[in-house]
Every structure is written in C-alpha cells, then in structure tokens.
C-alpha cells in the first residue's frame, strides 16, 4: 500500500481540491465552500499562478491565460458560476485552501501523500514529475553529478521536497516565485534548477542554451521496465510506453 502511495505521488498530477480533509482539526470556522455554496454565491475562487508560462500567466491584454486557466474557466462554466482568480506562489497553495481563501487550486499542484493529508485532490489532469534543467555547455544528466553543487528550487514544490529528503549532499537555493528561480538560473547562481518537467520543457524552448538533462527524477522507472518486459513484445512498433502506462 505504501508502495502504491509512492507510485501515485509521482504518477500524474495536478489537481483540483474542493474540501479541506476531515480530521485535520476543527475547521468549521474556515468553512470551505461546498459546491452548493459556490453555486449560490455565483462565484468560484480559484488559485492560479501568474508567472508560469504556459500554464498560468497574464497576456499583453492583461488577461489570465494558460492551460490551468482554460481548465478553470471550463469548470466555472460547467458550474454556471463566475471564476474569480487569486494569484498564488507555490508555497501558498495548501494554506490558501486551508484558510478558505480559495475554493480550488489549479496551479500545477502535484498530488503527494503529504498534501493528501490536508487537502482533497480531484482526478489528476496531467502527467508530471521532477526534472532538472542545466546549461547545455555543462549539462547535468545524473543526480550524482549534483553532489556538493547548488540546485535552485521554488519553496513548497515537490522538487524542494525530493532534494531535501533524498539528496542531502545537494545544496538547495530556495526561491519564492517562478520568476525568481528562473532569473537565478540565468544569472548562474547554481549548477541546475529542479522543478516539474512540464514547465521546464516549455522554458528551455524559449531559452535554447539550456537543456532538461534529467527528465524524471522521482520515478524509479518500474512501470516502464515492466512494460518493456511484459507488454512491449505484444504491441506493434507504433505503440509507445507512454501510450499505456501512467506517469513517469
């Protein structure tokens, strides 16, 4: 079961959460809105990123746009209410829910066992795991290369958690926002930056002197191996592992 939980953690991600889980103390006073209350109010408050292109950002006309934002507007439309956006940073996401500041978080919010204890995740809507981006001239392709080096992370992310728990030999530089962490990488503050691979892919496209040397850190590749050994021989060449397995 524990293994299963771990698997789920790096398995697909990002989710919506509507309720503060019961059992985290009395929370009557911080009553998070139920769907009925949201409908009655006619407004759903959604926490989003404002500096994470292409997931949650603001275009030139001042409109909030991105993958998460399109989903947010769809949810509001399906509920028949107006969406009201609250811009958060990574480390404010759990507390924004717990404090009743928002009804829902759509901000690249990876499902983890620890977070599950305090917030209620909806079905994941994206595959994600922690990746590492570094300069093409000094690429980091294995975690072992990072020993004794500095790595940039954003506070309150799965990347921060992974390095804090599993890679104690790595010096972490922690930043508050996505803007800060990417600026720090560009000004050579550290050897690499670790964050969800989903936006590292987008970031390197605009910053071609960098590469995502490690695409997946926290998966052990179990399902991929399992797939190769047991399923691949039965499928044709046009079927890839990622068409079948979840996450990783």
């Amino acid at each position: 079961m524990k293994k299963m939980m771990q698997r789920l953690s790096f398995l697909a991600v990002l989710a919506a959460l509507l309720l503060v889980a019961a059992g985290c103390g009395k929370s009557a006073s911080t009553s998070t809105d139920t769907v009925a209350q949201i409908k009655k109010a006619g407004v759903i408050k959604i926490a989003v990123f404002g500096d994470l292109r292409p997931y949650g950002w603001i275009d030139q006309s001042g409109k909030r746009v991105g993958y998460d934002l399109t989903l947010a507007r769809r949810i509001a439309k399906d509920l028949g209410v107006k969406a009201q956006f609250v811009q958060v940073n990574a480390d404010g996401r759990v507390d924004a829910l717990k404090a009743g500041k928002v009804d829902l978080v759509l901000a690249n919010f990876t499902v983890t066992p620890e977070r599950k204890q305090v917030v209620d995740f909806a079905e994941p809507y994206m595959k994600v795991s922690v990746g590492v981006v570094s300069k093409k001239t000094a690429p980091i392709t294995k975690v072992s290369q990072l020993q004794g080096k500095a790595v940039i992370v954003t506070k309150g992310t799965t990347a921060e958690q992974y390095f804090t728990e599993k890679q104690k030999g790595v010096t972490l530089q922690k930043y508050d926002s996505k803007t800060q962490q990417f600026s720090a990488l560009k000004s050579d503050r550290a050897a690499a930056l670790a964050d969800d691979n989903s936006y590292l892919y987008a970031w390197v496209k605009n910053n071609p002197t960098y590469t995502v040397g490690i695409k997946t850190l926290n998966g052990d590749g179990f399902f991929k191996q399992d797939y190769q050994q047991t399923l691949a021989p039965y499928f044709g060449q046009d079927i890839q592992a990622q068409d079948i397995i979840m996450g990783e």
């Binding site: 404002g50 500096d51 292109r53 275009d59 030139q60 996505k178 803007t179 800060q180």
Partner: peptide, 8 residues
Amino acid sequence: GQTLVEAN
C-alpha cells in the same frame, strides 16, 4: 512586474 517579465 513579475507576471509581466514571465509573459514577455
């Protein structure tokens, strides 16, 4: 300002 930097 930070959202503008990221967008532009």
